[in-house]
Design a protein around this nucleic acid. Structure first.
Lengths: 208, 208
DNA sequence: CTGCGCTTGTGACATCGTGCACAAGTCGGT
DNA sequence: ACCGACTTGTGCACGATGTCACAAGCGCAG
């Protein structure tokens, strides 16, 4: 019972979350954990966790629970986080720079291999050891890199154009931070992180 | 049929999205739109839009569609975006600064009224016209402000502590950017924007 | 005033996601 | 070797979410 059908986003996102929690347990020196303990500690659902894992096989030991190291390792592999993924960051405003810094800072399986901006004053400058290219050169530069995923942190007005440039450049996935509804290309897996909408949701509940 | 039951997050987030799209139409000079046209233009579902709106009453004219200005205005009111909401930003790293800049930059109904950081070198400095306070003073400073919503952009290791300081200070809602699973306070509406998890989801689909 | 074309609002239905409860299975003690 | 305590993995039921199709309603033309 390995990957038969497409796994849902919800399940996948929870798996990332489980892995993160497991790392916390590792740091605390915990070696074994049951789904019940785990769920209580992190305010998650035990049965849902077991069901999420069940999509990919059997990970636990009945009567005992899960070995933290083992489960963490298997989730890491399963999510593809044991390999390096190359990123291109498009839009080096304050948000793009913050994301770039965050992603360069650590030992995570993401590596920035290209950066773009429209601002002529930024082009040519370096962010870390990486030269910033002009956004108009996306179709030329991307194929020279091994970038698979693009992080789109440009103003909403420029997002669609950049998105399309990226799709024709052979980018396989895009993580969009621009507060706009992208017309998606079917061959490119696209997700949006829209903090404005989340903020507005909170505002709603205060206004009632 | 005004607000009888709790509206789901999904519906609410789509309403924000509709409003955003309507503003685009306003800028383009469009005065009337049917749900079909709207859905096709923005790649959304027409029937779902109608159902989302139906939670709050009747907004359209049968046979004609929706008046763009009218619907935008009613959604604005409905979502509470016709009032100013006061924000506190906790964590003035690169991400927090980027968010603060973004939120100060425009005419949106959010206003930053307090900023915090643990870094002694930042405390006392100004971001715009706002003094940065030390994070340890959250319980003292927040009640003096009218802050209702907190934006939490601190490292994961500090997030839980800051969150709890905020909850005891009378904050009503928290938008968390730290990549960690918060133990939530029931009286405080809390949402997380976790770009790391979204990135990992994209990575998964590339690895298969 | 009447009829026609169009669009909304909505009930019925299908699909998806989650909680519950228990059979299957494992470990340690005796 | 067996028993009992415990936990996983899973079938089932329920609730939430989205799609479809159509009746109700509106405006315009004649």
């Amino acid at each position: 019972m390995t990957e038969p059908a497409e796994i849902s986003s919800l399940t996948l996102n929870r798996l990332s979350l489980y892995l993160r929690c497991l790392r916390q347990l590792q740091d605390a020196g915990t070696t074994h954990v049951s789904s019940g303990q785990f769920a209580q500690h992190f305010e998650l659902s035990a049965s849902l966790m077991r069901k999420d894992l069940a999509h990919f096989g059997e990970f636990g030991i009945r009567g005992t629970g899960y070995r933290v190291d083992d489960l963490a390792a298997r989730l890491t592999t399963l999510l593809g986080l044991d390999r390096i993924h190359n990123l291109a960051v498009v839009g080096m405003g304050s948000l793009g720079s913050a994301l770039a810094r965050y992603l360069s800072f650590n030992d995570k399986p993401f590596r920035i291999v290209a950066a773009f901006d429209v601002d002529g004053r930024k082009v040519g400058h370096k962010i870390g050891h990486l030269v910033i290219h002009h956004s108009r050169d996306i179709p030329e530069v991307i194929p020279q890199t091994e970038a698979q995923i693009a992080v789109l942190s440009v103003p909403a007005s420029a997002a669609q154009q950049c998105y399309e440039d990226l799709t024709v450049s052979g980018i396989e996935a895009v993580l969009n931070f621009a507060p706009t509804q992208l017309k998606q290309h079917p061959a490119v897996r696209t997700k949006s992180v829209d903090f404005q909408i989340n903020l507005e949701e909170l505002a709603y509940f205060l206004s009632s």
